[in-house]
């Protein structure tokens, strides 16, 4: 008998977006408040896992056509790339730069290359968590 999980699926549609927004908030709050790439990444994968629970692996793979192993590699490239930037300026590895930047719509922003490193952490965490869960889920 096929169970009817319309309540679960409807709630998931709303809640997963709230979780994703919260993940982004936590990610960007990391510099001055608790949070950062690691928790942000885990929350994002939490949202995807909720989708996996409400639907099935195929549906989620169709709506999110991402190879999460590649996500890990891209994340690592981000992290090592911020370090390699230091080779260009002949300063010690992983020396981070920061500054005030004026961007048309957003106004003046305090930007830091440590954020790029954190994006790397975020992608690597999302990628490895999802790879683990999908691989175990698909295994026979």
């Amino acid at each position: 008998m096929k169970t009817n999980d319309i309540i679960l699926q409807t709630v998931t549609k709303i809640v997963s977006f709230i979780i994703l927004m919260f993940a982004l908030h936590i990610f960007f709050a990391g510099h001055n408040n608790p949070g950062g790439g690691f928790v942000g990444g885990l929350l994002t994968s939490g949202a995807i896992v909720l989708l996996l629970l409400a639907y099935d692996i195929k549906t989620v793979a169709n709506s999110l056509p991402i190879d999460f192993k590649i996500t890990v590699a891209v994340g690592l490239l981000f992290a090592v790339g911020t370090g390699l930037g230091s080779f260009l300026f002949d300063v010690p590895f992983l020396t981070h730069a920061f500054g005030e930047l004026t961007i048309p719509i957003l106004g003046e922003l305090h930007l830091n290359t440590a954020v790029l490193f954190d994006i790397g952490v975020y992608l690597a965490v999302v990628g490895s968590t999802m790879t683990i869960i999908q691989t175990i889920g698909e295994g026979e």
């Binding site: 192993k69 890990v72 590699a73 690592l76 370090g83 080779f87």
Partner: peptide, 24 residues
């Protein structure tokens, strides 16, 4: 170069990351 001694760590690291893209 100031970062010379980190190259033996970075070169395999970057290589490993690039290798992930060429699985097949």
């Amino acid at each position: 170069m100031i970062n010379l001694l980190i190259l033996p760590i970075i070169i395999p690291f970057v290589a490993a990351v690039i290798l992930i893209f060429f699985k097949k």
